[in-house]
């Protein structure tokens, strides 16, 4: 099976600081791939390079998506989303003043834009647009059901509790019909029940929607349960890559998490 995402020699420097240093790994469409590492290991920077918020200093990011092979690092930010890469943010970024349903419709911007004849047809009330909007609402309803949020659809997103906001963000990302979903610490701040609900949602996405998942976590327990494949970063470098069991046993990983010998003692 070919890899959905191939990252090769990814390096990102800010002035003198090298946040990501020559990192290479692959992610499969059938997997939940975890990128883990202590604080400041370069996980989010790595994510920002893949999703187009930063332009990597060196390296290639290749996506085998719906449109064949695409070099993501050469595309501007907004185009990457259209290739089927969706993401969430560590500090949740919802459109707070809009309703949950509206948040999910914004995610279907391109399909709706075309249906509205780039606004011109929509302005004169063309029936094709009304149909397209109804379909978009149905898709949004489906993802709200999956996320257990149907009852909250008409609430302002900013007024929801924290855990629900996290799920809205994932549902919103899924409304873009991604082939790769990138989650930045999705379990941060969730209680055990919410965390279990989240895992269920992730399994649904992986198994029923042919969408690969790449997720950042520093909470080891979440990663070990949910991930099929794990990449470990420390100080911007990759120090391990394998199944949860392999990674758990890797001495380099243990050192990175528990500290060097003198600290462990």
């Amino acid at each position: 099976m070919t890899a959905l995402l191939t990252v090769e020699h990814l390096t990102m420097r800010f002035g003198g600081l090298t946040a990501v240093d020559d990192v290479s790994f692959t992610a499969l469409a059938s997997d939940i791939t975890g990128v883990i590492g202590p604080n400041g290991a370069g996980k989010t920077t790595c994510f920002n390079c893949i999703t187009g918020f930063y332009k990597p200093t060196v390296g290639q990011v290749t996506l085998a998506g719906r449109n064949g092979i695409v070099q993501l690092e050469q595309l501007p930010g907004a185009k990457i989303a259209r290739q089927g890469v969706a993401r969430t943010f560590q500090n949740i970024r919802l459109f707070d003043g809009m309703t949950v349903l509206e948040n999910l419709l914004v995610a279907q911007h391109h399909a709706l834009m075309r249906a509205s004849g780039f606004t011109v047809l929509g302005l004169i009330g063309w029936p094709g647009y009304t149909r397209a909007e109804r379909a978009a609402i149905d898709k949004a309803r489906y993802w709200l059901q999956q996320a257990g949020l149907e009852a909250e659809a008409d609430r302002e997103a900013g007024t929801l509790p924290y855990g629900a906001q996290r799920r809205v963000e994932i549902a919103r990302a899924m409304c873009t019909d991604p082939v790769l979903l990138c989650l930045d610490e999705p379990a941060a701040g969730l209680n055990p029940r919410e965390s279990a609900d989240l895992n269920q949602l992730l399994y649904t996405i992986r198994d029923q929607h042919t969408c690969g998942i790449l997720l950042i976590e520093h909470d080891m327990s979440v990663v070990m349960t949910v991930c099929d494949h794990i990449v470990v970063l420390d100080y911007g470098r990759k120090i391990a890559d394998g199944t949860p069991a392999e990674v758990k046993a890797d001495p380099a990983v243990i050192r990175a998490y528990l500290g060097e010998d003198e600290e462990a003692a």
Binding site: F53, A78, F89, L94
Partner: peptide
């Protein structure tokens, strides 16, 4: 207006 970075991540 609400969050331009999130809007960009959605392909706008």
């Amino acid at each position: 207006r609400e969050n331009d970075i999130a809007a960009q991540a959605l392909g706008i």
